[in-house]
Design a protein around this nucleic acid. Sequence first.
DNA 1: CTCATTTTGTGAACGCCGTTCGCAAGCCTA
DNA 2: TAGGCTTGCGAACGGCGTTCACAAAATGAG
Lengths: 237, 237
Amino acid sequence: MTITSRRERLRAATIDEIRQAARAQLLRYGPTGISLRAVARELGMTPAGLYRYFPGLDALVQDLGACCHQELAGAVVAGRDAVPAEDPAGRLLAACRAFRTWSVAHPAEFALMFGGPVPGLTGRDAGSVVQTAGVAFSTTFAEAFLALLRQGEAGTPTDPLVDPALVARVHEVTNVTAAPLQEALRPEAFALFLSGWIRLYGIVAMEVFGQLRWAVTDAEPLFEAELADLMQRLTRQ
Amino acid sequence: MTITSRRERLRAATIDEIRQAARAQLLRYGPTGISLRAVARELGMTPAGLYRYFPGLDALVQDLGACCHQELAGAVVAGRDAVPAEDPAGRLLAACRAFRTWSVAHPAEFALMFGGPVPGLTGRDAGSVVQTAGVAFSTTFAEAFLALLRQGEAGTPTDPLVDPALVARVHEVTNVTAAPLQEALRPEAFALFLSGWIRLYGIVAMEVFGQLRWAVTDAEPLFEAELADLMQRLTRQ
DNA sequence: CTCATTTTGTGAACGCCGTTCGCAAGCCTA
DNA sequence: TAGGCTTGCGAACGGCGTTCACAAAATGAG
């Protein structure tokens, strides 16, 4: 029940329109091809007018990244929840497949979210928004992973290999969104989870960035093989 | 003995100077922050003058990418060859570690080479130069991997999962540089190699792109664990 | 209804960018 | 020494992000 004055509604609508135009540019020209002036042109506005809604291009791009993160998370959740809860392994599989499907269908968005720091590379706080969004996103997988854990199917990897400062850091950053991850913080389980996430990211990023094209025209069988191996590693061992 | 007239020498020197300035910009401002005008400024030249040496900014950036690929390949080879040939597993390990070390030390260059298509995203032929360079680069690992194979330690994965058009493609693209890869083209071996390369790329890309910072402050133990698991997968199974 | 205040958008300007083109000066060769 | 090739310059074009003073519109209080 958030009260919304007429002004606020108009403003929100404009912001949405801006986002939409920027998104179209992202689609067409890639993360670095988004132009304030072009967005303004599409809205029939003056470039300066956009500064009433975003403090600059970087902010717009970052906002776009956050939106994409949300959208991707939605796709993953939808994929996961299409499989009944009685089959946690199937749910995790479905989540991974949804991640790849969305990413391959939205390469520009993927590059924006998971590529290197796009604008400059100040790196310090610039990516903080997108990184917290990334954490919230990864909890999507963590949930399915934890279901596996609870079912008692997942084993524990051999070595702990956890950073001492890690627990505090994750606690700090997952305060609101990621309650499930705190259970996964049992060091061995967390390491196992990270290892899986790394492999999933690796193959999807390679495919989306075209780094596999020299070897393979259709990366799906490769992905499925990697996924099968990954699931085997997660459930048995 | 390629004859070099005085002009050609001067020209080569200028090109090198341009590369050097561009490289400095890459280091400071990232792949998208390279500016023709800034390079020209640093050389005490007019922007237009640079067009006598490169047909445009994109060409300069691509040339830079090729140079970086060469440099990275050199680092990996050096790391690999620091381990005696009697220990093929150790050589492969050393190559992987050298890959990570160089990449972490040169994040901008890594982003340029392995990130998404930087300028626009025409994608078709734009990345062809960098992709052939990537193939040549991956043979560095293939060599060490093949040594393992010949030693008879490496097993074969379960399913073939090879693209039918793959053999011809790789034959076509590795004609000169990558004779060793042709032996690895035995489908199962190639799949195993690709799987390993994917995992290696995955963890290094995640670290360099800062995608692991939310979870871990020092990614090295994670890398070592992943590497150990990877080697185990490659040698035994 | 009126009037002051806040919000929204404009237009002009600044300095940067990549790129093109005509022209001058230098070098190499014949 | 004469001609051609190479190199670099200067000016210009259009596009970019961003700033700033200013006008118009919407809002809410009296």
